[in-house]
Design a protein around this nucleic acid. Structure first.
Lengths: 210, 210
DNA sequence: AACAAAAATTTCCTATTGGAAACTTTTGTA
DNA sequence: TACAAAAGTTTCCAATAGGAAATTTTTGTT
């Protein structure tokens, strides 16, 4: 047998193609290592993991030793059977740290206030600069759509989560929709958007922009 | 040729095994449909998608028509080449997405569940693909730091907001810090991080990764 | 250390994937 | 409608994945 995993060879070919052609270089991706760590962390033997996932002992062994590239079907069984966190599977090994280790904690109510006629923003994590996302907690003062002179539009995407109360979510291209505690929305900010409280007390939301 | 995809048959076997044995029933999972939606939404032909991903036209066609279960290696090429959001691939089909002014509402409790030994994730806004951010609502099941075999590390930045309960926020380069309802944190994910509930009931948080 | 039991790996084999090219369907244009 | 070009599907085959069982390695006990 070749002592080099086939799909790694494949990857290498892929990289050169990408060089010549267009995008996407595909890195090695140490799926096997990951899987082994996860299995051991749950104190499972291959036999037990086999029962949980429905994959043969031998297959699991080969996956862990990076001797095969499992099918999507097999990966799914792994994910479901072992309760694997998906982002970890696909992200890089990430050598032990030394990389960006920033952290910023914001205690309730201690964010930076930023009031407007219609919203009462509390900006979070303001200590950190150059963030990919901008999070804030907002109280929606507006009580009718007319309070907005014009659509709010800006770059990027926005995630919205309703903490308290209820509100109407107006968007340029859709019917307004009422959101309640625990509901969330994700949308393109180039599309006009605005919020109007409908509950007795002003609604409160978490907003994250990227 | 059989008119039934092989791996679907396989899945069915898996389900019965799971019934008899222990956990994890694996659903059909319409990967193909997803991929097609994503490709078309970017106005790509199979030929173009082939160039971007490095997979043969024919292979792409078969994947989209659910005639084969691609290997992990192939899935990776898809992900990198077409800019697919990983979690989308593992979550249920749902409806198709529009382009331009996108919007996706997720009602309380209707997100896509993704349980792990330590966290109970509910993925939000799973109908939209190619998002800059990935939002989750998570219940923290872990009760001690020892339940994590190793630091969780991955690419990007993360915003965390505590909805309910209290928890200890462990990070690789800082002292653990206790967070309460309404507190939030923003940090680099390359730095090891994990959460442990300290309140009577499991703590609940909103998590947004970018 | 020697042995037995458990766990992991490897072998051997069949079934499935993935690529090249042939073929079919769809689209658009006169 | 007829035709050509583009897009998509299917076929065929070599390469690879996945399962059962044999083999090797590790672990634990005396």
């Amino acid at each position: 047998m070749s002592d080099e995993p086939h799909f790694l060879r494949e990857e290498r070919v892929e990289i050169s193609r990408a060089d010549a052609n267009s995008e996407a270089a595909v890195e090695p991706l140490q799926l096997g290592k990951r899987v082994r760590e996860i299995r051991l962390s749950q104190n499972l033997t291959l036999e037990e993991a086999s029962k949980r996932t429905g994959l043969a002992r031998s297959t699991l062994s080969k996956i862990e030793n990076e001797q095969i590239s499992p099918t999507f079907s097999a990966v799914n069984k792994l994910v479901k059977g072992l309760g694997i966190d998906i982002p970890q599977l696909f992200s890089q090994p990430k050598r032990s740290a030394a990389a960006g280790g920033r952290r910023d904690i914001t205690r309730t109510g201690t964010g930076t206030p930023h009031p407007t006629p219609t919203y009462e923003h509390e900006m979070l994590a303001t200590q950190l600069t150059s963030k990919k996302m901008i999070p804030y907690r907002t109280t929606v003062r507006a009580r009718s759509f007319e309070e907005y002179p014009e659509w709010v539009r800006h770059d990027g995407e926005e995630f919205l989560y309703v903490l308290k109360g209820s509100l109407l979510f107006y968007t340029e291209f859709y019917e307004p929709i009422e959101l309640f505690e625990g509901d969330s929305a994700y949308y393109d900010c180039e599309m006009g958007h605005s919020l109007v409280s409908t509950s007795e007390a002003d609604a409160e939301v978490i907003w994250v922009t990227a």
